[in-house]
């Protein structure tokens, strides 16, 4: 990379933001362990927040704080207000998710998604009182060709 070509910082930041979202999304899709999914969710939210702040940035503008000096061009304050809220939402949801994970661990003793899904399915069927779950067997579908009713086969 020759020195003259200074990479445009904002483009880099956008790449960073989208990178975070993509890594977060991949983590969500990729993960098997619930805790790692919560982490990935946090990452993706950080990426979205960065994207929102970038949306409010103006070239060579200063922070929207009035210091006694001459009033220079300022960055757009609105996205910053929004991101403030978004970050705290993210942490609130994360704290709740961790609390839920604690209860899941207590209830089932594992945090692996595949096992949990099977355990939950078993519980729901037990609670509903459905018989042995042979999911392959379709329930009473359109009355199939059980021979013409009343006709000797």
């Amino acid at each position: 990379m020759d020195m003259t070509f200074a990479p445009d910082p904002l483009a880099l930041l956008v790449i960073g933001a989208l990178g975070l979202i993509v890594v977060g999304a991949a983590g969500l899709a990729f993960g098997r362990h619930l805790f790692r999914l919560v982490l990935a969710l946090g990452l993706a939210e950080a990426g979205a927040n960065l994207l929102l702040v970038i949306a409010g940035y103006r070239w060579d503008a200063v922070a929207p704080i009035l210091t006694g000096s001459a009033p220079a061009a300022m960055v757009d304050p609105v996205p910053q207000a929004l991101v403030l809220t978004a970050i705290v939402i993210g942490v609130g949801v994360q704290a709740l998710a961790v609390a839920l994970l604690v209860r899941v661990k207590l209830a089932y003793g594992t945090l692996d998604l595949a096992e949990l899904k099977a355990l939950v399915e078993r519980d729901i069927r037990a609670a509903a009182g459905i018989g042995e779950p042979d999911s392959a067997q379709a329930p009473a579908t359109l009355p199939g060709p059980a021979g013409l009713i009343g006709e000797r086969p």
Binding site: I65, L66, P77, A81
Partner: peptide, 8 residues
């Protein structure tokens, strides 16, 4: 002074 606070 902090305009972000006035927005928030």
């Amino acid at each position: 002074a902090n305009i972000v606070t006035s927005v928030v």
